[in-house]
Amino acid sequence: MRHTLIDTKGAGPVVDRRTTLRWFAAAMAAAPLAACGESPGGFTWTPPEPLTGPGYGGDPDLLEPSVPWPLTLTRAELAALTAMVDLILPADDNALAASEVGVPAFLDEWVSAPYPAQQQDRALIVPGLAWLDSESMSRNNGAVFASAGDAAQRAILDDIAWRDRVKPGAEQAAEFFARVRSLTMGAYFTSDDGWKYLGYLGNTPGTGDYPGPTPEALAHLEGVLNSMGLEMPT
């Protein structure tokens, strides 16, 4: 059987079921933070313990990649995250919503990865999701963010989503939002549908010489250069 190389590399112990359960328990422990219904000013940002399991190792299977670490976001966290990413990149006439291209599941994979950069994101995102629920419950008669409705959700995001008009006191929530926005956009545009939306055509093998720009692309460039008083290179 082909196995990941993690257990042969001395990179750390293989994750056993008990460890996994402990991680889940730790993740679940964050949920009551949202449920305790503290007032807006009273929310405490408590970063979770960093995850320290093994990664995929220095020589992973390139042909059949797999994610060796367990996913750790709770159902409640995923619900808040899904509502949030679909506000960041909603469905419209020309594009699918973030959740329709798998962004929430990917962000779960991201914050569950045992690498320093991802754990730094986890320390911001897990409490951030709890903040969203806490904020929503205090404003919306106990309704968590996912079930607060579009207008109520937007009211919260409007306090944190624009760099130059962050509501005083919500700076950390704004930092959390900005990070989720960047990750959501990355996850979206690296997906198959994201490629199609942008029109990315690369990584497609061809034979013969590289064809170079299309006549249409060249004509467009010539127009741009002419308008700037520059000459088309020969």
């Binding site: 990149l89 909603p90 624009w162 760099r163 900005a178 990355g186 690296t190 490629w195 942008l198």
Partner: peptide, 23 residues
């Protein structure tokens, strides 16, 4: 027109369809 990646989005602001159009 490179392969879209996970980085390079920190300069964006706000949320919604406009964000996607800007990219």
């Amino acid at each position: 027109f490179g392969e879209p990646g996970m980085g390079g989005y920190d300069g964006y602001d706000g949320y919604g369809s406009e964000l996607r159009l800007n990219v």
